[in-house]
């Protein structure tokens, strides 16, 4: 079963096509690295798959849902780590993670799931009670990942997940991605750190000018 099916997808942001006729299929349980130059469409692809960008033309289905008419159903099932961390500065690390767990409708399980995520990302102990505005950029990034992991989404969309992290943090992220895939999730990672991400992903696709110009299996197209 395909989790992501894009055929001839065009997405215009402002006046410019950020995606210009993109074809991409990602199977369930697959981990895919997306690489390419700045402005190539990597972040837009992730936001499109999250249901945050509406395709202007083409066919786009994620998790079986049409991205034009059913994107609200998609949003509940995906987790997106973008450039911004999406945290509240005046709440503590733990309060942020618990808030996002409750916002995802976890109810009574929210606190236990949040504690698991905090521990998994190395954010337990005194750090959990610190206001987000006082923690380092790397710890902030980890908190954002914990807020994503707590939801256990079916599709993980990670934009530069290793950015700002120390070696230990990078290893934790890799382990987390591995665990998500082992649990049946699909992961799409956009990263410039090819050596590190290639260890996670047997498949590497390249975007340039909003189109697919190559993938690791040898399918190479004109830019």
């Amino acid at each position: 079963m395909s989790v992501v099916e894009l055929r001839g997808v065009v997405a215009v942001l402002g006046r410019f096509p950020a995606l210009a006729g993109l074809d991409l299929t990602v199977a369930a349980g697959e981990t895919v690295l997306v690489q390419g130059p700045n402005g190539g469409g990597k972040s837009t692809l992730l936001r499109l798959c999250a249901g945050l960008v509406v395709p202007t033309r083409g066919e786009a289905r994620v998790l079986g849902f049409d991205l034009v008419v059913e994107r609200h159903a998609v949003r509940r099932r995906v987790g997106l780590l973008g450039h911004a961390t999406g945290l509240y500065d005046d709440l503590t690390v733990a309060e942020n993670v618990i808030f996002w767990a409750r916002a995802a409708g976890l109810g009574r399980a929210a606190e236990a799931r949040a504690n698991w995520a905090l521990g998994r990302l190395g954010l337990d102990g005194p750090l959990a009670d610190q206001a987000v505005r006082t923690v380092s950029a790397g710890q902030r990034r980890r908190t954002s990942l914990a807020a994503l992991a707590v939801r256990r989404p079916d599709l993980w969309l990670l934009d530069e997940p290793h950015a700002g992290l120390d070696q230990e943090g990078r290893d934790v992220v890799d382990d987390l991605i591995g665990e998500a895939v082992a649990a049946g999730a699909t992961v799409i990672v956009s990263s410039h750190e090819l050596d590190r991400v290639r260890r996670l992903s047997p498949r590497v696709v390249t975007l340039a000018g909003g189109t697919l110009v190559g993938d690791r299996l040898g399918v190479v197209r004109d830019a």
């Binding site: 249901g51 945050l52 509940r76 987790g79 973008g82 911004a84 999406g86 509240y88 916002a103 409708g105």
Partner: peptide, 13 residues
Amino acid sequence: ADDAVVGLRLSGM
């Protein structure tokens, strides 16, 4: 401030 609104859109709330 930190794009928390995106998280709210994805939360299903």
